[in-house]
C-alpha cells in the first residue's frame, strides 16, 4: 500500500509527514482493504489481551491458551494473506487468483482453523 506518491517537502515536520500518510491512506486505500485493516487491528487487540491474561493468570489449562491464542494468530495470518491477494496493487503477483477466489480460499482456511481450535480447546 502506497502513500509514496504523495510528495512531501524535504523540510516537512514529523507531524506533517504523519498527517499526509494518514490522509493518503484515507483517500487512496480501497474500502475493502480498510475493512481488512480494521479486522486485523481487532485481532491484534484480542491476541494481546489473551497473551497478557496468560502471563498474569498463568497458563493452566495450557491447551486452552494455545487454542485461543492460535485461533487469533491464525486468523491474523489468513487475513493478511487475503489482504495481499485482494489488493489491486498486487495484481501482478497473483494473476491467477481473482478476488472472489481469494475470498473463497480465505473462508475455507478460516473454517478449518476454527474447527481445529475448537477441537483442541476440548
Amino acid at each position: 500500500m502506497a502513500p509514496s506518491k504523495t510528495v512531501a517537502p524535504a523540510n516537512a515536520s514529523a507531524a506533517n509527514v504523519l498527517s499526509s500518510v494518514v490522509n493518503s491512506y484515507i483517500d487512496k486505500t480501497p474500502q475493502r482493504t480498510k475493512l481488512i485493516d480494521a479486522f486485523l487491528g481487532f485481532l491484534v487487540l484480542t491476541g494481546v489481551l489473551q497473551f497478557v491474561y496468560c502471563v498474569v493468570a498463568g497458563n493452566y489449562p495450557f491447551n486452552a491458551f494455545l487454542a485461543g491464542f492460535s485461533a487469533t494468530v491464525g486468523q491474523f495470518v489468513l487475513t493478511v494473506s487475503l489482504r495481499m491477494q485482494s489488493n489491486t496493487e498486487n495484481k501482478g503477483a497473483f494473476e491467477a487468483v481473482s478476488p472472489e477466489r481469494a475470498f473463497a480460499d480465505y473462508i475455507f482456511g478460516s473454517l478449518i482453523l476454527h474447527f481445529f481450535c475448537i477441537n483442541f480447546i476440548n
Binding site: 479486522f39 481487532f42 485481532l43 484480542t46 489481551l49 489473551q50 491474561y53 493468570a57 498463568g58 493452566y60 489449562p61 486452552a64 491458551f65 487454542a67 485461543g68 491464542f69 485461533a71 487469533t72 486468523q75 478460516s110 476454527h114 481450535c117 475448537i118 480447546i121
Partner: peptide, 17 residues
C-alpha cells in the same frame, strides 16, 4: 474457569470473522 478467557478468545475471533 481458567479456560474461559481463551474460550472467549476463540468465540470473539470467530464472531469477528
Amino acid at each position: 474457569s481458567g479456560a474461559w478467557v481463551w474460550i472467549a478468545g476463540i468465540a470473539v475471533t470467530v464472531a469477528g470473522w
